[in-house]
Amino acid sequence: MAVKQAPQEWAQWSNGALMVFRRDFLAWVKYYKSSVILNFGEPLTNLLALGFGLGTYVAKMAGVPFIDFIGPGLLAVTAMNAVTFDMAFEGYDRLNENRIYQSMITAPLTVGQIVAGEYLWEGIRSLLYGAVFIVVLTALNLVKSWWALLLPLPLFVTGIMFAAPALWVASSAKNHEQLFYYFTLFITPMYLFSGVFFPITHMPGLVRDVIVVTPLFHVVNIVRALVLGHLYPGLWGDALWMILYAVLFGLVPVRVLGRRLAE
């Protein structure tokens, strides 16, 4: 009997998670215009100002024109930011302000289902916002390879990878200000030092060691390789890091949020 029940239970479980995803999608549909412009304006400004501005003086970076170099880097940043800010602020509000998580857990959902639904949505969200940026890169003739067709894969994983720590922070924060600590202490340094604007090869050894264990660095490597078509075996390592992060970080909010909801 147990063997027969297992698939049905899995169907029920995943259906619950899918409904959390559906809830997020229904909410997003109502504000997507302003949200897309906000999330996408900043990296685009960066690309145009630095690419065409600074790019005139910095002719080449790691063997390619400067704008070709930072384009895919900013694509990775777009995905990270689209997910991080949404999950941190929305997650905080859903737990502390409008208490939507409480209503979900009272309806027969488990913390696991809630978290899984949120990750699924943030994965798709990372894809959606990434796709808009890819269109811009394509229009500026910055996509150099058909390998770029594989981008949805790393973008989806990027969504989960950054949704997890953001939900962790959202579940532990006592107020909105504490969310900004996370942005200032983790997100901004990653943005500046993960090889988005310059290769890390010439940084001091210790700094390099730190950068190599931060998540955005690996996303930038993979995304840039696919956009430029410069593939090399080391990318498998980056892919492994990304999956490792997604899984390790991904499990933490199940505990932290679960504890908050059982208070």
Binding site: G16, R22, A27, P108, L109
Partner: peptide, 26 residues
């Protein structure tokens, strides 16, 4: 459950609030 603080979903319409809750129930 009707909780003390009405934890409705402010991002959704009236109908969506009920429908999605029903979907949570399967």
């Amino acid at each position: 459950v009707v909780a003390q603080d009405d934890n409705l979903d402010p991002s959704l319409t009236v109908r969506e609030n009920t429908e999605i809750h029903g979907r949570f129930y399967g």
